[in-house]
């Protein structure tokens, strides 16, 4: 007799072939080489990272110059995750933060580690911790997480218009 079945694994996967489009090629090639590449709008001059489809959503024009941003950045907002859930791989409490990379004008979400959740604050300066180079793919997952860079906090004015 087979043992009683109490729980099952039901992984669900959807496989896409994703066309990056001209707007994201530079971004992805950059990640493959450990560089964070955004693009600048020629009209409003904001730098988008990631540049997505390569169009400025405010001005409706194609983004132009490729701009290297980061790798360091400033935490603008953050969320402390205290809730355990099935399949959780990170020890709680942990912090998911919006990080404004140096030179970029939109924040991106990433994980904060190597510090107490209670010590994370707006304006905190952080730096990326990269995966081993042999594991790099054209993905932001090349960065495992961000950690404090031990610089002085950024002035509120620096990121005030990016909240």
């Amino acid at each position: 007799m087979a043992d009683d079945i109490l729980r099952i694994r039901t992984p669900i996967g959807i496989d896409y072939t994703w066309s990056s489009g001209p707007g994201s090629v530079g971004y992805m090639r950059g990640l493959e080489n450990g560089k964070l590449l955004g693009r600048r709008c020629p009209v409003c001059e904001l730098v988008y990272f990631p540049p997505r489809n390569g169009v400025c959503p405010r001005c409706g024009v194609l983004l132009a110059d490729e701009v290297e941003v980061g790798p360091r950045g400033t935490i603008t907002t953050f969320c402390v995750v205290n809730v355990p859930f099935l399949g959780q791989t990170i020890k709680i409490p942990y912090v998911a933060a919006t990080i404004l990379l140096d030179g970029a004008d939109i924040g991106m979400q990433h994980l904060i580690q190597e510090c107490e959740a209670a010590d994370v604050r707006m304006g905190m300066r952080v730096e990326p911790v990269w995966r081993d180079k042999s594991l790099w793919t054209p993905s932001l997952e090349n960065i495992m997480y961000y950690k404090p860079s031990d610089e002085p906090d950024a002035d509120f004015d620096v990121y005030a218009r990016h909240l």
């Binding site: 729980r7 099952i8 694994r9 992984p11 996967g13 496989d15 072939t17 994703w18 990056s20 399949g87």
Partner: peptide
């Protein structure tokens, strides 16, 4: 073009009814 895999590693309890059905 790049492969993109959306993946949810669900692991769930089945409850008494489905559990008995699967065990049988």
């Amino acid at each position: 073009m790049a492969p993109l895999r959306l993946f949810y590693p669900y692991d769930r309890t089945v409850g008494s009814t489905v559990g008995r059905f699967l065990t049988s």
